[in-house]
Design a binder for these strands. Sequence first.
DNA 1: ACTATTCCAAAGCTTCTACCTATGGATCAA
DNA 2: TTGATCCATAGGTAGAAGCTTTGGAATAGT
Lengths: 303, 303
Amino acid sequence: MTILQVNYFLAAAAAGSLTQAAEELGISQPTLSEQIRKLEQSVGVALFTRAKQGLTLTEAGQRFLPHARKVARDYTAAMDSVAGIRDRQEGTVAFGMFNSGQYVLSGLIPAFRSLYPNIHVRVIGSNSAQVADLVRAGRLEAGVVALPIDARGLTMGDVLWSCEAAYFHTKPALTEPVTIEGLLQRPLVLPDSGWAENDPTRRQLSERAQTIGMPFIPDIEVETGAAALAIAASGTAAAVASVPVAEALGYTNRLNYVSLDPPLIETFAIISRDPASLSPATQSMIKLAEEHMRMLHRQYQPT
Amino acid sequence: MTILQVNYFLAAAAAGSLTQAAEELGISQPTLSEQIRKLEQSVGVALFTRAKQGLTLTEAGQRFLPHARKVARDYTAAMDSVAGIRDRQEGTVAFGMFNSGQYVLSGLIPAFRSLYPNIHVRVIGSNSAQVADLVRAGRLEAGVVALPIDARGLTMGDVLWSCEAAYFHTKPALTEPVTIEGLLQRPLVLPDSGWAENDPTRRQLSERAQTIGMPFIPDIEVETGAAALAIAASGTAAAVASVPVAEALGYTNRLNYVSLDPPLIETFAIISRDPASLSPATQSMIKLAEEHMRMLHRQYQPT
DNA sequence: ACTATTCCAAAGCTTCTACCTATGGATCAA
DNA sequence: TTGATCCATAGGTAGAAGCTTTGGAATAGT
């Protein structure tokens, strides 16, 4: 007994004729006839009396009818239950984002909400490494991360945006790009204290330190880029931070900043698990995030 | 989307593993895997997240789950709704029987009820011709009739029982078999007034009258054999009736009766519509009626 | 750290099923 | 009787559902 047969049964019962029901169903009469017979066989009793004047429900058919209607109703209800998600009209999208991204990609979430007003958005993550771990563990479907990152078990999109990280300080005299040696000579505050060695920017700095045989241990570690810049503004230590982030936070006016030598470039990409298994809402979110990152690319690096 | 796939989905969701669910379902893992994928395709969204640690329901899957349970429940309820009828534990059997049969086959209904206590029995019919018409029209599934009868559109079983109809009268002098001439000379009361020409016994008598060129018009017509015998007992007219019927009614002791010449034999058979479409209860009733008629055969005609 | 086990997906093949067209028998209306 | 209608049967095709085998990836065990 299949849903198909149940629907055929209902159509036949309503039409009172196999020929007519078959026409309404868009199938041939012998097909309908056979399916009805199979249904009867599977339930073990005749559901119709085939008489000259058409079909009549047997006693068993009369008992079966309301149950068949219920099965058909619940079947369509089951289909409809996920229609909202499929059509991006409801549901939840959980999207990962490195902490500073929330400032830079601040326009992303409002844009998404205006496109899909009824989809609940949950933005998760304080660090690229954490976002990658969450995606790997299946707790997130996708997110934006800074590179480089451990990409095992992940699908990584193209690099759509990169920006320069600069040295933010309070010394007016410093106007030339600062090398790794110069950086290590002065007190330094870095964000993402909780993830330390896994933070992409920190890993780049750490590698530079290794090339000159110096250990890389920041003097101060704080959780967020905003906190690091605030400490830099107080003059206690200099900070390395993305220029767009500092700009979004208003520090480009209040602090001096110079490039590193060689320039420290932060690159960003979207990671996700198997794209085929992404929810519709997440797919839309990724698409939108890509557009925003391309937009930022044009804005900050107008070749 | 089929019931099968819904059940597979439920099993997979419960087991949290395709491999384990497949084993519980008694199918191979790739089969289950493919069916789940087809289900997801038909609803348009992924229902499971395939992660390393097994399956997890997506948001869509979680919404779908209760609906799937409902469909599965309704499906089994629909199957169960006709199980009682299939297993002959409930339902109704409408069985036709010529009027006098109710006396002769009086043991049939109690026997049926003791076999199937919860099946409602409706015995219908006052005359063989009527019973045949009702079966033809689909209002009855089967019944016992006296032959001959118009068998078009009917399935007729074997003749399992026949009995003699005798001439019941109050004249002690009459002890020899009575011919059709003798019968027509005296007042006659016949049953089955409402069906007149179509009554099998009357047709036999009518044919005999035609062979001698006499019209056959009974003096008195009543509905039932019992009424005819009662009138015969009053001496108003003689009656032609089945001996077993008269015996069942107690008239064999109170009335004289002689055979006709030649003997008038009433034969009985079971008619039904297409045996393949008979309800289980009716099939049982037919079987039981056959047994009873065979029993009567042994009882009244012990060769 | 390497092996073993577990789990899901892919490939190739067989069998069954849903579907079709064409045809036949039976009934009802004209 | 003819025509129309209706359901059942026959025969054949394409797709679905099933199996076994194989492969890749990850967790777990020693």
